[in-house]
Computed example of a mutant assay.
Amino acid sequence: MTMSASDQNRLRVAVVERRPLLRAGIRSALDSAGGIDVVGEAGEAGHAVPMVLGAAPDVVLLDLDLPGSASLEVCRTLARAAGVRGVLGMTGRGDDAGLLRSALMAGVRGYVSKSAGAHEMVGAVHMVGSGFMVAGDGAARLVMGLLRPPARPAQPDGPLPVLTRREREVLDLVARGYDNRRIARALTLAEKTVRNHVSVVFAKIGVNCRAQAVVYGREAGLGLAG
């Protein structure tokens, strides 16, 4: 059966949350939002990856409070899964600096409190589904503080002369919050070519993840338009 255009535009979301009542509440909020289909649920790390690979969601809402390092291990796997646009982390620990740093390094595209209202959570899901990074006010301040690159001397030859023109274009779009798919469309490039450019840019400017690249690019004056 062929999907209609409206079906194709609906956002497919999977929920990984260890507490059944909270998981049910999150599902209810998403189901009531319109434009979202909850396509899978899991309550523990061991079930999360097979569920996501089978359900093929666009966005994964992931409990960052799973025992031990299970959440981060799951996140690393899901962040690389084909078809997943982003992992949105949830935590009940507040603005935990160590957790946020680890989650960002593991590949989360967003960070929301489990106590967030339905409107905030649904909005965060849509933002991640559209390729943006998301953080609440407190988390945003932590991102800037934790991931700010070392101070660099002023460059007389313009922003980031170590980069080629194309690499600056790529970093500009990364700094706007674009994922590789959107960058490829914007620059009329193959997604594989964009991935290669991103890897080279990260190596040249000395960052380890996209969140660091966003901060780095914006400090250089990129990513501010559009």
Rank of each mutant, 00 (worst) to 15 (best):
V49A: 11
G217D: 07
R80C: 13
I205C: 09
V16F: 06
L22E: 11
G110P: 09
M127Q: 15
S130N: 05
S71Y: 01
G158L: 00
A116W: 09
G107I: 07
V15R: 03
D95G: 11
V74R: 02
P149R: 08
V38H: 12
G217I: 04
G226L: 10
L88P: 08
G43H: 09
L78T: 02
D172W: 12
R12A: 10
R76Q: 05
R181C: 00
R168D: 10
L53V: 10
L88H: 05
L146G: 07
Y216E: 12
L78K: 06
M3K: 13
G123V: 00
G217T: 02
V108G: 02
K204W: 11
V170E: 08
V200C: 15
A175Q: 07
L222G: 02
S69I: 00
D137M: 12
R19T: 12
R218H: 01
R182T: 01
A118S: 15
L61Q: 02
V174Y: 03
S71F: 02
L160A: 10
I26M: 13
D95M: 09
E17T: 04
A45E: 02
R176L: 06
V201R: 11
R210S: 14
G98N: 08
A225F: 08
A213D: 01
G217F: 06
L146Q: 06
C75S: 07
G129I: 08
R27M: 09
A151R: 14
R181D: 01
A116G: 14
D37S: 01
G129N: 11
L61W: 04
M1N: 12
A79H: 03
T77H: 05
E17Y: 03
L100G: 13
G217V: 04
D172Q: 11
V194E: 07
